[in-house]
Design a protein around this nucleic acid. Sequence first.
DNA 1: GTTAGCACTCGACATCGTTGAGTGCTAACA
DNA 2: TGTTAGCACTCAACGATGTCGAGTGCTAAC
Lengths: 344, 344
Amino acid sequence: MEMDERKLKILQAIIDDYILTGVPVGSRTISKKADMGLSSATIRNEMSDLEELGYLDQPHVSAGRIPSAKAYRLYVDSLMKAGRIRDDSLETVSRHFSGRVHQMEDVIDHAASVISALTKYTAVVLSPKGKQPRLQTVQLVPVARDAALVVIVTDTGIVRDSTIHLNSEVDSDTLYAISRAITEAVRGHTLAEACEILPDMIGRMQENEELLQSIYGFLNDRRSAPRKLHVAIGGTSNMLSYPEYSDVEKARSFLSLMETRDKLASIIDGNGEMAFTVRIGPETGVPEMVDCSIVTATYSTGGGQQGTIGVIGPTRMQYSRVISILNMMGHQLTDLFSGGSDKE
Amino acid sequence: MEMDERKLKILQAIIDDYILTGVPVGSRTISKKADMGLSSATIRNEMSDLEELGYLDQPHVSAGRIPSAKAYRLYVDSLMKAGRIRDDSLETVSRHFSGRVHQMEDVIDHAASVISALTKYTAVVLSPKGKQPRLQTVQLVPVARDAALVVIVTDTGIVRDSTIHLNSEVDSDTLYAISRAITEAVRGHTLAEACEILPDMIGRMQENEELLQSIYGFLNDRRSAPRKLHVAIGGTSNMLSYPEYSDVEKARSFLSLMETRDKLASIIDGNGEMAFTVRIGPETGVPEMVDCSIVTATYSTGGGQQGTIGVIGPTRMQYSRVISILNMMGHQLTDLFSGGSDKE
DNA sequence: GTTAGCACTCGACATCGTTGAGTGCTAACA
DNA sequence: TGTTAGCACTCAACGATGTCGAGTGCTAAC
């Protein structure tokens, strides 16, 4: 048996309807809706074929059909009509981000809540990561008599800071001098390279060896423990609005997965370079998510790093809508991070 | 009618049982359990009295009784037996925090998940806040040709940073000189005071007026927009394990409240100075939380700031257990923030 | 003051028939 | 040969009905 034009059209009508209602769709519904002038009996025959081909499932014999993961795949790959976002919501988003709050974490948190509000699904946003950042400035700022803050500025615009303990008292000017020396030595290098370079330098310098050693130790630590991805989640409660999650136990296991940010990040974070990913049901590879789909997109920063934005929803997700929203938001974030002047 | 010793004992038994099971407790249950050798009929009479006194509610005529908010109040205030935490879980916690991760945000996130894991309820941890921090150092770090990072170190150990745009190119040494001058001028003052002082200083200095103006603008911004509290939440999914939330709609509204961090923070953040707060049901003042209770405790940092940790659970919460866990965790965090050497 | 006994209430649960949406099959039709 | 009308069949959802048991309140006896 072969897939033909008419079967495709019927399948599409079924998926569209099911995405909208979440209720198994029967032959009569399609016969009435799809404007091709076929009786329900004919539709029935076609649906039977579609089921045999693996595109439809039947919860029980006298219920309508629901699309299978295979059907969604087909839908996403070729059947789907491009979604249009309503202009006003787009505008709302722009306005939201035109404010002056530009701490990266805030932007990411914000993005997650905007996406979840627009889609009514659960949104996840990961902070950018990517190529090894190159050091631009290393500076010590006095914090207390025996402590200094190490500020590291990299070309990706990302700033890391942490205090280190000083064994002896060092005055502000000395700290600055040392900062300059280190900056001079490591500018343009990656953190890893800097860790190669520093020991030499420490050898050459006579004074303040102890201090230099602790800076070295600090950098070395940072190298092996890369900054944790910031994971923003929004709209987890949205999922409970869908009948798919009227079973509390199911909802609980979903939510508890949402709480383990590390795991969630690794699920969302497509290692691929794809602009868009759509994973449907079992394709997610996560047992807890067999009846979820995940759509992800990426955004990039001026520094050449990439972040991920994703939406998690039931398999009967409004794919086209979600994709256009993610698309739009990806552009927004890219603009914001690479365009804006006062970013972090 | 008066409350007497025996009524108290019976009430306590009822509350204990209800907290454990969540099922309305009947007279026979108490008659069997409470070792005072009374028949169910007698208990029944007493329960009837307790209901009249407002300590018990009856869902319907032929069901057992459940404690009212008033009963929990009494329980918490005087009936409750101090809870004991199992030694091993206490040890686990200590070990957890003895690691080297000492970014404040991480510690707070971590604390929330530990508390929720121990209590099986929802935990909320707010970052410390309190007295106006006093400036210690202001330093400009070059980031790009036309941008600098402003690092502000205060006596509370909290560091704020953000980039500002420079209209003209300024070299590193000049930035440092300006930093020293500003630091000199504002050290020991609050942010608000600094904003009074700076204009004078700007007037006196001839050069770099533009740059100084943007720093002033930056400080002024910060003053009016205080750093957002960091709000860590853990174990929201725990709530779904309790039959109280088997109603999905109820669960949804709870979770959606948990997602609005600002609101949540203002609920948790007891303006009072109390070490412990227990708010039961309606006492929370939040309509969505009429059948929740909130227990909060505080921790403090070396800098004299205070943070809040809280647990949200059903009104039939294991109060004593929660209180001892919060107590323990409060001490842990206080130690960590005021004792540790390499805190942020 | 306490208790045993008893009638009563009411949610929880299972059973059962009805309804209606939906299917598959067959025979007739274009 | 593809399409359609008709019909028997299936099955979840729903409401009515009955039973069970936990629990109460009351009364009378101890």
